[in-house]
Every structure is written in structure tokens, then in C-alpha cells.
């Protein structure tokens, strides 16, 4: 018979297979990238064949897809959305705005590097990334999940002080509720 280690290994394989093929996305679409999602989901590119599905609320979601730039005001909402999601949870930064600011690099109100504020698992670059790029980003995330490397939620919990410090530096008037996530 199996010993404990082998049994948990098998359970892990099943879990990761299910997680990998069932990604429910809550798309935070205030940036211009939101327009790339309808073609990704509908008949031309059909992301549902990989098990990628939109979800209505952050409580049900697995992936937070941040499409485009984040102003300070929206960053607040994104942090709240992220903290309401249930673990394991993943973040995909979408478009060059989330990577280095993109064309808003000198703006007075947009953050320039998303991974300082939230633990990003996969970045999709481009301005705008086409639906093919979006799907390839999701497949990269699936690879990371099956290898067990997509540990954004763990990183966030362990380095919470560092993330909070960065968030507080940008969001001056910190009136965020404490979640027992």
C-alpha cells in the first residue's frame, strides 16, 4: 500500500490537475485591456476550452486579471478585491502598463510596477496583448500551477509587511478594512 508521502503526492497531482484546468477569472477591467477579453472568451479564441471562465465575484474566483494601468484610486479597490479572494489565488498582470508603467510612466496618478503591491504570477507584455498572448499567458500559469510554482498567495502572506509598506506609501489615506482572509 501507499505510505503517507506517496498518498499526499497523488492527492497533490489530482488537486493541481483540477486547479490547472479550472481557472475562474475575475477581470479587473478599468484599463484599455478589458476590450481584449470579449474576443478571448467568445467564439474566435474561446478560452473556455482550457477551463477558463469568468466568475461573478472575487469570492468565487481563482485568477485576478488586471487589464491595463492602475491609478492609485483603482489600486485600492484591486487590493480589496485580491484580499477577498480565496486561496490558492493567482494574479496576472496584463499589458506593459502593469510591468513598467507603459505609456503612463510619467503620470502623476498611476503606479508603475504592479508586483510591488500585489504578488504577480504571470506578466503578459504588449500594448495591447492580443487574445493569443492572453491565452499563452494563461497556459504559462497552468504550467506554473502544475509545477507548484504559482505561490503568489503564500508570498503575499509571508511578505505582508513589505507589501503593506509599499501600498501605504502610495495610498496616503489608509482606510482599508481588515479581512480575516
Amino acid at each position: 500500500m501507499f505510505n503517507d508521502k506517496e498518498a499526499s503526492k497523488i492527492v497533490d497531482i489530482i488537486k493541481n490537475f483540477a486547479r490547472k484546468h479550472s481557472l475562474w477569472v475575475v477581470a479587473y477591467g478599468t484599463g484599455c485591456g478589458a476590450i481584449e477579453l470579449p474576443p478571448t472568451m467568445t467564439s474566435r479564441y474561446d478560452a473556455e476550452r482550457f477551463g477558463i471562465r469568468g466568475s461573478a465575484t472575487p469570492r468565487q474566483a481563482d485568477v485576478l486579471l488586471i487589464t491595463g494601468y492602475l491609478s492609485v484610486k483603482t489600486l485600492k479597490r484591486v487590493i480589496r478585491t485580491y484580499e477577498q479572494m480565496q486561496e490558492p489565488k493567482y494574479v496576472i498582470g496584463f499589458g506593459s502598463c502593469t510591468i513598467n508603467g507603459g505609456m503612463y510612466w510619467d503620470s502623476y496618478n498611476t503606479i508603475k510596477a504592479l508586483d510591488r503591491y500585489l504578488p504577480v504570477d504571470v506578466y503578459i507584455n504588449g500594448c495591447m496583448p492580443r487574445p493569443e498572448a492572453v491565452i499563452s499567458g494563461f497556459i504559462k500559469l497552468q504550467q506554473l500551477i502544475s509545477e507548484g510554482k504559482a505561490d503568489g498567495a503564500k508570498r503575499y502572506r509571508e511578505n505582508l509587511e513589505w507589501y503593506r509598506e509599499n501600498q501605504r506609501k502610495v495610498i496616503k489615506n489608509w482606510r482599508m478594512p481588515e479581512y480575516n482572509w
Partner: peptide
């Protein structure tokens, strides 16, 4: 569209239980 495989809902439910 092509659509998900027929066992997609089983995977969804396993994933939800393994949260």
C-alpha cells in the same frame, strides 16, 4: 465555439473542494 470537455464541471467541483 469548441467548448470545454464534458468533465469540466467535475474539475471545477474538485477545485472548489481543494481551496
Amino acid at each position: 465555439r469548441f467548448g470545454p470537455p464534458f468533465y469540466q464541471n467535475i474539475l471545477d467541483i474538485i477545485k472548489l473542494y481543494s481551496k
